[in-house]
Design a protein around this nucleic acid. Structure first.
Length: 567
RNA sequence: GGCGGUGUAGCUCAGUUGGCAGAGCACGCGGCUCAUAAUCGCGGCGUCGCGGGUUCGAGUCCCGCCACCGCUACCA
């Protein structure tokens, strides 16, 4: 059987992720994985925290924690939040794991053996008072072009000119403010990915069905000339470099992070080695379809750098089959910002409302063709009109009416007529469209189609007028009510990938014994619950969002003014 | 600066290979009353960012502009 490997870009360890991070990688990966499982596919959904690098060290410093302890805690927080959002990964690992350490060192050795690694001595800015080398962006000073006094060493935020740290006037450490900086020489391993540029281009050339967003970013890097890159750093936190003379160095985070996709898979297998085989998913895995989900900032690493690391080993490690890239989710036209407290973070969101509310909204508004905009007004509309009124109300009106009319089990009697045949025809058409969109990873369109399916149920119910039939023609009423209860099941089943909590709740109450399988035969689905099948009526599924809620949340999380203020 | 994306109804967005401009929301009218004042039906001429060009015909192809957003390799 063909197998599906699904990975989400690894969330960085530094703090709770916001809705933009969620919608750009973890959530769509989960929706897709859930969909494939319902279709009966063999799915492995892998994610992990990306824990290395200077930002993690500095965040730990700020909290007064050892970096390993900081990462341990933050990983637990992110794992717990992911589970709260019902992210159904088979494993949520850590790039600091021993498995990733071994694999990262293995990849470096392979690349070295194939002649893709060389040593180079480079000069880097060292902050004596901080006791560390500083990445470009952690050096600030006066911009030589515009005089802006807080320009970063990589780019001046004021005039947007690209800079080199040595360009800065009065350079100082962004960490401590110390001006006691010096250039120090350091020896590093470089990955000669320039030698692989042709092979990577050939490989990209064959990806005709990838989003333009993804291939255009890949070509941009290739067109500008793929440069060799350092894969080691002078830090203590990271995967140690197993090479004489490199005892005080670690692999650079860009190199070890993507390898953690494999590392995390091995972590998963090591938890149950009798039954799980990590390697068959990654090595000589021609039967595996591998789909990656990520926001656009991560695309260069997944189209160029990581493939170079894989191809360069000259061994049959698995290359990605399809990359789904996302644009940004903005907040009232501005950026989500941790430092300014603008926007909605996963911990805030889950405290306000259950996961399904967010999942539905985010999939219905996924930034697929362009950046999209989170607003509380748009959020309220999606929840109130779609979830509460169209789906929630349909479930409620069908089940409460049936219970009151004939009791808490599916009524027998009557024969399906034209109205039901018409319904089946429309549902077949829409199910095909919904399924096609999920296959194509077009989540926005898929969600719109799911909503249209729900609306078709309401339209049928209106046309059939069961409240009249109950009085005039009990046989006819039985057909309508039976169809209605089965529609509730059918719609919940289809909604499982997007809103697993509420849809699963409905299914457990009306069809606990019917296995949840992706439907193919609509007519058969509408008879899945036969005469006598008992059901429970769930509580009202979704509460509506009021104008007071909107006002309160807008002021709490920052509104238009704050989001735009510093852009 | 370079590269990329986007620009279509009040709002959010669809528009496959060029062939009479679409959906949801909002708004208006009507129906229904089982349901979370829910739902169902009907109603859309909008300089398709601007200016040229190709074509019998351009939202769609070509050229040139403008605006907004993103990326630009030591943040990951």
């Amino acid at each position: 059987m063909p197998r599906h490997l699904v990975t989400s870009a690894l969330p960085y360890i530094n703090g709770v992720k916001h809705l933009g991070n969620l919608v750009g990688s973890m959530l769509p990966a989960d929706v897709y994985a859930r969909y494939l499982r319902l279709r009966g596919e063999d799915v492995l959904f892998i994610c992990a925290t990306d824990e290395h690098g200077t930002p993690a060290e500095l965040a730990a410093l700020e909290e007064g924690l050892d970096v390993a302890e900081y990462c341990r805690r933050q990983h637990a927080v992110q794992k717990q939040l992911g589970e709260a959002f019902h992210l159904s990964w088979e494993h949520f690992g850590r790039s600091s794991s021993s498995q990733n350490k071994e694999l990262t060192q293995h990849f470096a050795r392979r690349l070295d053996a194939e002649g893709f690694i060389e040593e180079r001595t480079i000069e880097q800015v060292y902050s004596v008072d901080d006791g560390r080398f500083l990445p470009d962006r952690y050096i600030i000073g006066t911009c030589p072009h515009c005089g802006y006094e807080a320009a970063r060493g990589d780019q001046c935020e004021n005039c947007t000119r690209l800079l080199d740290p040595t360009d800065l006037i009065n350079p100082r450490s962004a960490v401590s403010g110390s001006t006691n900086l010096e250039l120090r020489e350091s020896r590093h391993l470089y990955f000669k990915q320039s030698l692989l540029a042709g092979e990577i281009r050939d490989w990209i050339d064959t990806q005709n069905d990838w989003p333009v967003l993804v291939t255009s970013i890949a070509y941009k890097w290739l067109d500008e000339g793929l440069m060799d890159r350092g894969i080691t750093r002078d830090l203590s936190w990271g995967v140690p470099v197993d090479r004489p003379g490199y005892e005080d160095k670690v692999f650079y985070v860009w190199f070890d992070a993507p390898i953690e996709y494999i590392g995390s898979t091995k972590e998963w297998a090591d938890l149950d080695p009798e039954r799980r085989d990590w390697k068959s998913w990654w090595y000589d895995a021609d039967d595996v379809t591998y789909t990656q989900f990520m926001a656009k900032d991560n695309v260069p690493f997944h189209t160029v750098s990581f493939p170079a690391s894989i191809i360069g080993t000259r061994k049959p490690w698995k290359l990605v089959s399809y990359i789904k890239g996302f644009n940004w989710l903005n907040y009232y036209g501005g950026k989500f910002s941790t430092s300014r407290g603008v926007g909605v973070f996963m911990n805030d969101a889950i405290e306000l409302l259950p996961a399904d509310y967010w999942r539905y909204y985010l999939m219905a508004n996924a930034p697929e063709s362009d950046d999209s905009n989170f607003t509380w007004e748009g959020f309220a509309t999606a929840i109130n009109k779609d979830l509460a009124d169209t789906f929630g109300n349909f479930v409620n009106r069908c089940l409460t009416f049936t219970r009151r009319s004939v009791g808490s089990s599916v009524p027998g009697g009557g024969i399906a007529g034209d109205a039901e045949r018409e319904l089946v025809t429309e549902l077949e058409k829409r199910l095909r469209a919904y399924t096609d969109n999920l296959d194509a990873k077009q989540f926005r369109k898929a969600t719109a189609e799911l909503r249209a399916l729900w609306a078709a149920g309401n339209a049928y119910w209106e046309r059939a007028e069961p409240w009249k039939a109950v009085k005039a023609d009990p046989e006819q009423a039985a057909v309508i009510l039976r169809t209605g209860v089965n529609l509730v099941r059918f719609f919940s089943l289809l909604a499982l990938p997007i809103i697993p909590e509420t849809a699963g709740d409905v299914l457990s109450r009306i069809a606990p014994d019917v296995p949840a399988r992706w439907p193919t035969d609509v007519a058969a689905e509408l008879e899945a619950l036969g005469p006598g099948a008992p059901f429970e009526v769930p509580e009202v599924l979704y509460r509506k969002i009021t104008d007071d809620d909107i006002e309160a949340w807008r002021s709490r999380f920052g509104g238009e003014a704050e989001a735009r203020a510093t852009d």
